[in-house]
Design a protein around this nucleic acid. Sequence first.
DNA 1: GTGCGTGCAAATTCTTTGCAATGCA
DNA 2: TGCATTGCAAAGAATTTGCACGCAC
Lengths: 144, 144
Amino acid sequence: MPLDAEQIVHALNDRGLRLTRQRRAVVDAVAGASSSVSPLQVFDAARAACPELGLTTVYRTLEALSEIGALRRVHGPDHCEAFVPAGAAHGHTVVCSRCGSVVEFTDCDMHAVVVAAGEQTGYRITEHFLQLSGECPACAAEGT
Amino acid sequence: MPLDAEQIVHALNDRGLRLTRQRRAVVDAVAGASSSVSPLQVFDAARAACPELGLTTVYRTLEALSEIGALRRVHGPDHCEAFVPAGAAHGHTVVCSRCGSVVEFTDCDMHAVVVAAGEQTGYRITEHFLQLSGECPACAAEGT
DNA sequence: GTGCGTGCAAATTCTTTGCAATGCA
DNA sequence: TGCATTGCAAAGAATTTGCACGCAC
């Protein structure tokens, strides 16, 4: 389960980062998003709550949030700079190819795959980046 | 095993695409790369063989090669538009976190993971994008 | 009060597009 | 020869940076 807005705010405090109106708006925008969001999307959404918000600040805030682990970057075939609220644990994202909604799953047992890949390639695998896509339940249901 | 330059050229012909000096240079540059390459890197490398090559052409050619399946896009934490010669079969890339070299592995059994993810999230998973990183044998050996 | 954080505007970087000229099939 | 492909230059989009001011702590 992704961190909610309060938890992210808390994480900011823990790091000694200040909570400004702008950051609050950005956090709310991202935490309330049902799918991954690009900096521009965050800008639009957060601006509703904080009209004097600047795009620069959005970039800086997303960067900061991502550094403290509150957000996670996701990559897709098209968009390459999108963010998603990160879960507390190591996890992967599942993106709906229809509506773009994103969920996380943490129950990943990649051990066997990692071992197999290591054996086949000779590399010493230390990290894996996995992203799944498919249809979310809602889209699957409404799809004929 | 990735396609070599000749195979890519062949793939071009099959699609009715013309083989120009520029495309030849781009193909050679990508096929000869030991790691993933960005459009700019391709431009630099290919320019050595074809000085009149334009950057525009590099973008268009990479796009075309990617469309016919000769190249594969890879994403990293930092760079987001990099290409790698694609193998003939479904495969994944393993990137060395030290030297950036890339290999493919095709022996991927993601079935169990995909099923588990589907059960946990309720999504109907149709695709997976996996990228591993670690140390290649050479870097692991020279690392103290 | 002290800086961290901000907005603005300009600079930079990356990518795409229009169009006439070129050269592959 | 015909038409896909190219290069150039300019447009466009996305992101970063410099700097003085304002506000959270």
